[in-house]
């Protein structure tokens, strides 16, 4: 499902209308999604997989995924909904690629920052409860200040480079690094208290 954005001046469609097109099973939904969000979703995927072709495939998987789940799903926030799908697709591809070689992506760097408590490239243990961990991380993020929440999400969810985060917040790189160090320290404590082995 290869789609190209049209180069003519064009106003992005409202999310509600795009979702409506999905519900009508109108393929224009994918075209409009691609036009409005391609650049953004591409950046999400690129931070993880660091490969243009892989990103293209992640985007196509994202559109197909959205097509398959809308309806019956009716996302209230389309951008966040697409972000979730793209990230999942990219992470899946990242771990598949990782089996073959090291990927020089921002995701690799951001994961290496967590090496105090995240390490090993093996598969998920059979008794591992991802939903529970998701809940613990969510609680942790909510406990942070607004700025730290933004930094955590930028660095460890979408794997934004530190320079980008610094620029977003009009902070210096060193200030962002300092904040990240504080976040990691608190996160380590939280995970330990929840029984996660370090």
């Amino acid at each position: 499902m290869e789609l190209q954005s049209k180069q003519t001046a064009r106003i992005p469609m409202d999310d509600d209308k795009i979702v409506e097109l999905y519900w009508e099973r109108n393929e224009k939904a994918i075209e409009e999604t691609d036009f409005k969000y391609k650049k953004y979703l591409f950046s999400i995927a690129y931070n993880v997989v660091h490969d243009r072709l892989d990103c293209e495939e992640c985007l196509n998987d994202t559109y197909l995924g959205a097509w398959n789940v809308i309806p019956p799903t009716k996302p209230n926030a389309l951008k966040a909904f697409l972000t979730t799908i793209t990230r999942r697709m990219a992470i899946k591809r990242y771990h598949n690629n990782l089996k073959q070689n090291v990927i020089p992506s921002e995701m690799t760097v951001s994961l290496s920052e967590l090496e105090d408590f995240v390490g090993g490239d093996g598969d998920v243990d059979s008794d591992f409860d991802a939903e529970r961990l998701g809940g613990v991380i969510s609680d942790f993020v909510r406990s942070l200040s607004e700025r730290k929440q933004f930094i955590f999400m930028s660095r460890y969810y979408v794997a934004d480079p530190i320079d980008t985060i610094a620029s977003d917040l009009s902070l210096s790189r060193s200030m962002v690094n300092k904040e990240l160090a504080a976040i990691r320290s608190a996160l380590k404590e939280k995970l330990e208290s929840e029984g996660y082995s370090i």
Partner: peptide, 15 residues
């Protein structure tokens, strides 16, 4: 915790 587990956990982050 393995990297894959960490990322799986992040997949369940509150929307």
């Amino acid at each position: 915790m393995k990297k894959k587990e960490w990322n799986e956990g992040l997949n369940y982050l509150d929307p």
